[in-house]
Nucleic acid binder design. Structure first.
Lengths: 103, 103
DNA sequence: TAAAGCGGTTTATATTATAAACCAAATTAT
DNA sequence: ATAATTTGGTTTATAATATAAACCGCTTTA
């Protein structure tokens, strides 16, 4: 039992949430995705998804645009540069916890 | 926007917690570690650490042994097989979210 | 022997996640 | 036409969780 003082780097609490992380994981791989699609991919309830999208949006990690698809409303989501950076850093930080080598 | 239905696998809520994950991360790499060491490595308060160790212990992910170091009490923690398995599965599951290839 | 420190546990509080209840617009059935 | 259902969400209430504060017994030091 040595005294290494590893001191784990704190995990971004905005990303350390199952649903928000799933949302970011989807958005990082596509140009944009709409509410209904994200809901189906994550299996989240509409209410839960709505509040989590708000939080990501308030943090500037995603941007949300309200448009129309025909006559129906359509909520489009896109990841921002800030969101991309935060996600990348979260991944690197988490690797320390998961014992996955950096890179 | 295809219909892939990725359906993210749920993350073990016991491990998806910053402090508990840090504890497991420490314990997976050593034979055993005591309360004071884990506390110093994680920077957690004693109270917080105490309850999180209880939860991990109640889940059978770690075992806790109360011993003495001289006259002082000493709480030793070890990861169990079940804990090791759960941690490994958590890591694999998380890779889906983090876009890290499996393995 | 009083005071301070150590190694924790118990309990109260603040935060967070989540679903239930709700709403407006559009569609479908009568 | 209009009543009933569905769609695409938001707001709000509740349940769960994390976290620290307060506490406790024992030991060491003053």
């Amino acid at each position: 039992m040595e005294e290494k003082q590893k001191t784990f780097k704190p995990l971004d609490p905005l990303l350390h949430s199952e649903l928000r992380l799933a949302v970011m994981s989807i958005l990082i791989g596509v140009v944009e995705a709409d509410f209904v699609y994200i809901k189906s991919q994550t299996g989240a309830t509409a209410g839960n998804l709505s509040v989590q999208l708000d939080k990501l949006s308030a943090a500037g990690y995603i941007e949300v645009e309200k448009t129309f698809k025909g006559k129906k409303t359509c909520t489009l989501c896109r990841i921002t540069g800030k969101g991309r950076d935060a996600f990348a850093e979260y991944v690197e930080t988490l690797k320390q916890y998961l014992q996955i080598p950096k890179g």
